[in-house]
Design a protein around this nucleic acid. Sequence first.
DNA 1: CGGCCGGTTGACAATGGTCAACAAGCGTGG
DNA 2: CCACGCTTGTTGACCATTGTCAACCGGCCG
Lengths: 258, 258
Amino acid sequence: MVTTTRPSNLVPCHVQDLPEGCRSCPVRDLGLCAALDDSELAGLQRSVWHVTFEPGQAILTEGEPARHIFIVIRGAAVLQKSMVDGRRQITSLLLPGDVLGTGCDGTYGYSAEALVRTELCRIPNRTLDQLCARYPHFERHLRETLGHELCEAQSRLLWLGRKTAAERLASFLLMLAERAEHRGEARNPVRLFMTRNDIADCLGLTEETVSRTFTQLVNRNLIRLPRRGEVLIVSEPALRDLAEGQLERNAGVSRSPV
Amino acid sequence: MVTTTRPSNLVPCHVQDLPEGCRSCPVRDLGLCAALDDSELAGLQRSVWHVTFEPGQAILTEGEPARHIFIVIRGAAVLQKSMVDGRRQITSLLLPGDVLGTGCDGTYGYSAEALVRTELCRIPNRTLDQLCARYPHFERHLRETLGHELCEAQSRLLWLGRKTAAERLASFLLMLAERAEHRGEARNPVRLFMTRNDIADCLGLTEETVSRTFTQLVNRNLIRLPRRGEVLIVSEPALRDLAEGQLERNAGVSRSPV
DNA sequence: CGGCCGGTTGACAATGGTCAACAAGCGTGG
DNA sequence: CCACGCTTGTTGACCATTGTCAACCGGCCG
């Protein structure tokens, strides 16, 4: 059950001023900032920085004082909780447009780590408070975002508490497909962003079980694995049936029922 | 794995006007309302109702349009997600002062059910928005509450994804103790509020495993079960060690190590 | 070419699930 | 007051899913 933690990449994070205004930001219309118009964003620009993290680097650490929130601009990261003996649970996958850093009693309630080279927008909490006070629609949007995350976390509690390995993996793949579409990307060949080990830590399994379950889904002709880090969904309805527990548990390779 | 759902109690919910002002409310200083002073509360009073639910009754249902948020005043309730085949995961235990009903895209993202006779304060979302717009400190408090819940949900993801049955139960009991203290009640004889079946649906186990794990903790002299629905923690540090995975897994009844 | 990393597969073990019997409270009704 | 039945909780025997340990494969990079 103990999982080896990726060796922390020691490249220092690269901080740079915004090259152009927020208007040209790749996630301008995706996450929180979609709630603000260009003139409202203009004020934000002054107090915001872009930061870049290399794969494996910690973006923030559980227990640290929470001074900023971050918005993912490019790349991919995870939120995670760990135990002293190294057991790890990934609680969330962060992709462009997603927010992290919402605290808990003044400190971060989880750690965050970059999966690939990741660029984020760093917003001081003070600025966030000002935005909320000044623009009620922004505050509502933020509140809805938090509500959405809470709801997602609860779905994942159902995955971990009540679903089988195959159901969890199916749910995971469908989530990736839906999120890709939401970001305006192709829905079907799903990019994984993670190693088998990371997926295991996300689904509460071991990498061996994840690997076996992948081949099981391939044998049941629900998915294909065209290249490393990519999954082709053969039948999304069937995969959804599996994810929701509608398929008999032990349905192996399709076989004529004699 | 299928768990029988409690038969829905059909007693209609009882709606009544607030007998006295919010000032005499039992959770006046506990949850969200602690962020408002008496004069600010005065405006709230007009649009707020108290509602009571009987054990087993649904307070709100996943997918319903989200029109109100609720604050628990008396009693106990749970948030839960379910699958079509009846598998159920309790995602949160709600006690006096706790908030429920924070939506997700305009609908509730989970169901909520009363465990015992439960009285709640029902606040229309419109009123909530007005409060947030008018009182930035209230809005911040709400945001912190949501952040706290998110953080709690993530801890529970770690429970379900990476902890053994005994570690989960220990974590659960410690959470109950801490929350009792936070509400100003006795920390140690912990009240469970739930049946074994509910605890199982909370911890991603079966009621048999919960029962066995209880007796295992009793045999290891970590807890005692003085009466139904109550747990006496014998050694909180030892229980915490167990919860965090610091105790060797198979430590049975204490035995001199020869 | 060789080593390393990520992934796959096999054999076996163990944690927790399933099914079943039974015990202990508790409220109801004779 | 006791008997009965219902619900909740406990325990046992057995089983299945998943974890553990180990070997091995293939691609990539130095």
